[in-house]
Design a binder for these strands. Structure first.
Lengths: 191, 191
DNA sequence: GACTTAATATACCGAACGGTATATTATGTT
DNA sequence: AACATAATATACCGTTCGGTATATTAAGTC
């Protein structure tokens, strides 16, 4: 039972392949061949192909949330909080690029696809985290009130738009960009 | 040659199915059964499953661009132009909801998946249209200069974030929302 | 009406799919 | 050393995959 090595390698290879070509287009056969094992090994660790995906998301989305959650706490300064959140996303994307790209892809994938159904709970947590920040911030900034859901979605949209540029190698995720992005979100593209 | 009827119906069914469960997860068999025909009929009109996808995107993405292109012309007023663009997106999404959802999903899908490769040229056109607007606007607004690509991506991100809320039935696409969204993009969430 | 071609169906192809029954090799326990 | 169980492999299952060879029907042309 000490050799969880193959389990990790299976998850790693599944991440690479799912990210590159999509969950549905990748066969179990490819995953096990990439990992250098055979099918019964995969089915020893996971119930099914879907079980492999669930385990993968639990590992990967868990890693993302572990970095985001501690930053998504409003403590009186909305700009600072949004900066911290964005920095956490940037940090995660840079260290787990494939992982974030896959999650992003699954979030926008067909609503009845297995990938979308598997990612949905983790996406909901992210949205809820952001929404709570705006709810708390509205106590200090009355003009934000009643629009938590929209702001959370809008800010997530901005985050993903910027990260999208990074994934297309059109820019780098610098600390400078954190300030610029939050400033633009808060005050618009002028100024 | 008068009965292009089946061809249209195949495209319609493919759109519904691809949108709902994703290109890779939907078999040719399902598409023809949904359309009430058989496989040779499909292969009479399209070279392959991929050819079906290409034809579908040519029809659907063409419809989208047909609505966007005439609006994406800067004529001295950036706010007005951005509003017109957003209104065009809203209009299209409301009349072709499935179609837009599918395109959005494919834009974020795995980079080596067939869906992503098929949608890429159309996405590039959208991005380029927006970029040109910001390039032209920069002639009047010096502080926008040199950031066309980012602004184009950021605005597309905002557009898709808002549309994402609509697709999740969290809001409706009103004219009021057009003004609010552009205003927020231009001047931030305050004010 | 004869002829051509477009449009469709029946029945099938080899390959890959997700998954498993069975057997074998490690590994940790007593 | 004996034993139990975890971990892995070989070889296979039925099903579905994308695609097609062949035949038939419908439609336009002369």
């Amino acid at each position: 039972m000490l050799s969880m090595d193959n389990r990790q390698r299976l998850l790693d290879c599944a991440l690479k392949l799912f990210n590159l070509r999509g969950y549905d287009a990748v066969g179990v056969r490819e995953v096990v061949e990439a990992a250098g094992v055979t099918k019964p090994t995969l089915y020893h660790y996971f119930d099914s192909k879907r079980g492999l995906l669930d385990a993968l998301l639990q590992r990967e989305a868990g890693r993302l949330l572990a970095e985001i959650v501690p930053c998504a706490v409003y403590q009186g300064d909305l700009v600072l909080t949004l900066e911290n959140i964005l920095r956490a996303y940037f940090s995660f994307v840079q260290t787990h690029t494939e992982c974030y790209r896959m999650q992003l892809g699954m979030y926008f994938s067909a609503p009845e696809s297995e990938g979308n159904q598997a990612i949905r709970p983790y996406a909901a947590i992210q949205h809820q985290l952001l929404e709570e920040v705006f709810i708390q911030a509205a106590e200090n900034h009355g003009n934000l009130r009643g629009r938590h859901a929209r702001y959370a979605a809008a800010y997530l949209g901005v985050i993903n738009a910027v990260i999208g540029l990074y994934l297309n190698e059109e820019l780098q995720l610098t600390d400078e960009l954190v300030y610029q992005t939050v400033h633009q979100f808060m005050h618009g593209i002028f100024s």
